[in-house]
Design a protein around this nucleic acid. Structure first.
Lengths: 376, 376
DNA sequence: CTGAAAGCGCTTACAG
DNA sequence: CTGAAAGCGCTTACAG
């Protein structure tokens, strides 16, 4: 056998991780007795060893069908290349995590969830941030290669900087990959985690309608973002359910940032008639709305009700505290890692898309329209 | 050839590390032309390949004389096993980074600085957070052992959870370690990075004095924290320089958190005479002060001036924007990593303690006492 | 103690 | 697109 891996195995017998044990339990009878070689995987998949080699090395000259068979066999047997194998015997696993930026409470909460679950599972987290790439920008193939070379056990993507080609490159090479709240649906088989944005948008809007508001504006997120579209459609659905229709001029879009909220509020306050309530697509946007309201002496919630989205600590700490649609951000992070661990163990996933439930949390920024008394 | 190392070498020709280049320059003519295989080393040593294999794998059944010949040849040719070779060609170094928590703009900014410099230096960042430790709590020795086993190139500590014993354990084992803004001075030789807290505290207070304030309160950080003591002493020095003395009841302490600011403001507003200005030991504390001011309808800066500390985006985005002592947080992160890289390279450091300069940034939360007109 | 020979696991080149 | 065959580099078993 190659490169003295077994000597190592002997010396460090006690350090085998639970994974390794688990992955063994998924091996089929055929592979159970022998070593788990590439040839064994080939047998399992009903193809030749060279074909498995090609799939592992990301060659193009493999049919989609064969590739699928091989990937399945790889997952089922829990095959590890000698390098990975050695890594499992001697070291800790690490998951690669990539964020767009950490400058949002949203990102930090998701990261907290990942870190927590990683600590529990004894896995390292290798963090990087898009835009802070090294001197040499990498092609999707190179990046995938590197992830494999470094022996990462998977990839959590919380950025829109990775296109479908990149995600596909990870997936084709069998790197378990999970995308959190993607702007666009990821390609084919890549797992994605989101929340019930549509329901959240509907809940936020219904709450305002229940309070008696009829002119409700939506200060939305980026036009292209799927989560924003879902929230917008939830908003429209709630209006329609009461026989109201959305007015274009009450619907804005822009980045999930405070300054967009400031601009949006300026725009809305110039309208005649003004809306009496605003549903903001994120807490940061809502804080911008709130700041501009304060500058223009528009009292919240007396003269303007405001609902945010995300439910981060920003919502709790703002004055007035912000009614907001809470997303289980930590849980999203935890779930992402959980999925990767499952894929590593070769378990079959029930679904490629998971939506966790949002929950409207009512605080002090919403009230009936034209309320005369400040909320206590 | 084995495990695709050569294809890799081709594809990543440009990425060879200086390392590798160095080892090449040691190759003899014989090995220069071909690949540097174990067989080539054998030729060089005048023995067979199996013999070299035995030496590399630490077998006993090799004569001392033969072993010496082989070791010499190994050194002269710079032979690397496939695994090592691969690691050199593809492998990256990683620095271990430990935070107390990421739930502060302060922490995220420091982390941003680390990530940025890491990306530039092609180094991975392995992040963890204190309190989210795995199932098995590690002893200082075990933790140090693990850092070494995983081949980390260094350790950046932004937490008070590691005591002097832990830091010492890292240092004794030769793991380059840098502590950022430690609550207490780290032991002996460990490098620490901070800012000019004393000067910052003095600047903040002098600014308020210059505006004409005489009753200035300090809503401080944790009693034990060195950075807090320095800020407090800067505050007192500024007062003394004007012939004023600090009043105990104007000096509070507590955690660097919003709720402490809220409580502090409640306490101060009950005093008679009230202070006309507050120096808060962090932006989060200042935001708590600001929130309570709003609740109690105390206008800032007209009825109460407020200076924060940190200069994170929180200060910029608050309404009114917060005058604050800016710390170069990103630069602290960058500097920490820079120090580790230097220690790795064996450079001698001029100093075990670095203080970066703070800078007072004046925004809209400070004004002369009892100003009648709001600041534009 | 040494190394020729056999073997292992993976990859490559190429015939079909 | 696939896989039999050849090849590579390292290791092992064993004859001397």
């Amino acid at each position: 056998m190659g490169y003295n891996i077994d000597g190592l195995a002997e010396r460090r017998e006690t350090e085998r991780t639970k994974y390794f044990e688990k992955s063994r339990s998924h091996m089929t009878a055929a592979t159970h007795q022998g070593k788990l070689t590439l040839a064994a995987v080939a047998r399992e998949a009903g193809v030749s060893a060279p074909t498995v080699s090609k799939v592992i090395n990301g060659r193009e000259d493999v049919s989609a069908e064969t590739r699928t068979k091989v990937l399945t066999a790889l997952a089922r047997t829990g095959y590890k290349s000698p390098v990975q194998h050695r890594k499992i015997l001697t070291g800790r696993q690490a998951v690669e995590v990539v964020f767009d930026s950490l400058n949002s409470a949203y990102a930090v909460e998701v990261l907290n969830g990942i870190l927590e679950h990683a600590a529990e599972s004894d896995i390292d987290v290798v963090l990087s941030v898009t835009g802070k790439q090294g001197a040499t920008p990498l092609s999707p193939e190179q990046r995938a290669r590197r992830i494999i070379d470094e022996g990462r056990c998977g990839m959590i993507v919380v950025t829109s900087a990775f296109g479908a080609d990149q995600l596909d490159a990870f997936h084709r090479r069998g790197v378990p990959t999970v995308v959190i709240d993607p702007l666009n649906p990821p390609p084919g088989d890549v797992v994605s985690i989101g929340t019930t944005n549509w329901a959240g948008g509907k809940d936020a809007t219904s709450h305002l309608l229940d309070l008696g508001h009829r002119r409700i504006a939506y200060v939305g997120g980026p036009d292209g973002a799927e989560c924003n579209q879902a929230r917008l459609h939830g908003y429209m659905a709630a209006l329609r359910a009461r026989g109201l229709s959305a007015e274009d001029r009450y619907i804005l879009s822009g980045p999930f940032r405070t300054d967009h909220g400031v601009q949006g509020m300026k725009t809305l306050l110039r309208l005649e008639p003004r809306p009496t309530a605003i549903f903001a697509a994120s807490d940061s946007i809502a804080l911008g709305v709130l700041a501009e309201a304060r500058r223009q002496n528009v009292r919240v919630p007396e003269e303007m009700s405001l609902v945010g989205f995300d439910g981060t600590y920003l919502a709790e700490e703002s004055v007035p505290a912000l009614t907001s649609v809470t997303q289980p951000l930590q849980e999203m992070g935890r779930a992402a890692l959980r999925f990767i661990l499952r894929q590593m163990r070769g378990e079959t996933l029930d679904s490629r898309r998971v939506e966790l439930a949002t929950k409207l949390v009512i605080r002090d920024s919403t009230a009936p329209p034209q309320a005369l008394e400040p909320v206590a």
